[in-house]
Design a protein around this nucleic acid. Structure first.
Length: 270
DNA sequence: CTGGGGAGGGGGCCC
DNA sequence: CGGGCCCCCTCCCCA
């Protein structure tokens, strides 16, 4: 499939309950090994209060329990797209205790480093603090930062232009209009009636009728109607082709030839 | 099976 | 914003 740089990837847009954690105080630590965790649903708001009667909770990305009586509940931070964009972060909430040990200063800097690697664009995580990277306002809670970003920094959410003929989405109207031409095919060949999305595609097609071949190989003087085909042909004159097999180091002039070579099982992987 | 030509499609860039 | 062009790519077919 051709690369589609403008096609947006789908992401979750479930509406979070921003008030759910608003009244809670949070501390946070970060562990990089969070992708293999099995999600559990977050309990209702009333269950977020600890059995000891105070509202302090510890929010942690480390799933390790702290005591046998302390249940862990999972919050999917991807439910907060205004905080972290499309990044999926798992936050474990310690329901009954103060959570794992608060990092010392050296561990804290490590936490900061991991956090900046995990979500570089939207939110900066600190121990006990969420900061908006756009206006640098500090927030004690995820929900607070989320609400701030929704009301102030993300007033104009990213627009999304969807094609009515297929499921593709584009970040700009121009990109969508260009894509729509692949459905409407406005460029029609007067000689055979074949339709194309772009004028230059039609131009290249008309060459198949006229036999015009304006692109000439400097090595063998062979002529081509299409510049891309000349480029592919030039590879045949090269000793070292562009696409190399990782198994046997054999090179090929085209990616399709390399793919066919690898699929043939010539060089089975380890 | 492999190499290569022909035809066509997609997004990006520039004017 | 639209057109033209570029680059990269795929698919089909044939020798």
């Amino acid at each position: 499939m051709p690369r589609s740089f403008l096609v947006k990837t789908h992401s979750s847009h479930r509406i979070p309950n921003y008030g759910q954690l608003e009244t809670q105080r949070e501390t946070i630590s970060v562990s990089p090994m969070i992708n293999s965790l099995r999600p559990r649903p977050l309990l209702p708001q009333e269950s977020l209060h600890t059995s000891k009667g105070h509202s302090a909770l510890t929010v942690c990305t480390d799933p390790l329990p702290c005591s046998s009586e302390c249940p862990l509940n999972l919050l999917l931070l991807s439910d907060y797209p205004h905080v972290l964009g499309a990044v999926t972060i798992l936050i474990w909430i310690h329901m009954e205790c103060s959570g794992p040990q608060i990092p010392n200063s050296s561990e804290e800097s490590q936490v900061q480093e991991q956090a900046s690697l995990s979500y570089p664009h939207k939110a900066k995580l600190q121990v006990g603090c969420f900061e908006c990277l756009d206006c640098h306002r500090p927030y004690h809670t995820v929900a607070g930062l989320a609400r701030h970003r929704q009301l102030h920094c993300d007033l104009q959410p990213r627009r999304c232009f969807s094609c009515k003929h297929c499921d593709k989405e584009y970040a700009s109207l121009g990109a969508l209009k260009m894509h729509l031409r692949t459905h409407t095919l406005p460029c029609v060949c007067v000689l055979c009636g074949k339709a194309f999305s772009r004028p230059w595609l039609l131009q290249g097609h008309i060459r198949t009728h006229t036999g015009e071949k304006p692109y000439t190989c400097s090595h063998c003087s062979r002529a081509f109607a299409d510049r891309s085909n000349l480029r592919a042909h030039l590879q045949t004159h090269s000793d070292v082709k562009r696409y190399q097999c990782k198994g046997c180091a054999k090179t090929f002039s085209r990616m399709s030839l390399l793919a066919r070579h690898e699929e043939s099982g010539c060089c089975p992987g380890p």
